[in-house]
């Protein structure tokens, strides 16, 4: 499954990133690499974007970007 499918307060672990180029590089730089644990903190009031907690800091992605991150639910 992909990161955009994870519900609020659920935790998951990154399996892979399915994209190259700018977006993929940016996600890699921010630490979306296999093994990283991610918790969904909350959705924005209009559902999109989503705020995540990983490695002690908060980061928000749009669904369109979160879709590129493959995860497994913990």
């Amino acid at each position: 499954m992909t990161l955009d499918e994870i519900k609020q307060d659920q935790e998951c672990e990154v399996v892979d990133i399915n994209f190259e180029g700018m977006v993929g590089q940016r996600l890699l730089d921010m630490g979306f690499i296999p093994g990283t644990r991610i918790k969904v903190v909350r959705n924005a009031p209009l559902v999109d974007p989503v705020e995540f907690l990983m490695k002690g800091y908060h980061i928000s992605l749009r669904h369109s970007e979160a879709k590129l991150v493959e995860v497994t639910l913990l």
């Binding site: 996600l27 921010m30 974007p49 908060h58 980061i59 928000s60 749009r62 369109s64 970007e65």
Partner: peptide
Amino acid sequence: RPNAPFVMEMPP
């Protein structure tokens, strides 16, 4: 024009 991905830190 380049459309930066929305990867935004939410700083403390």
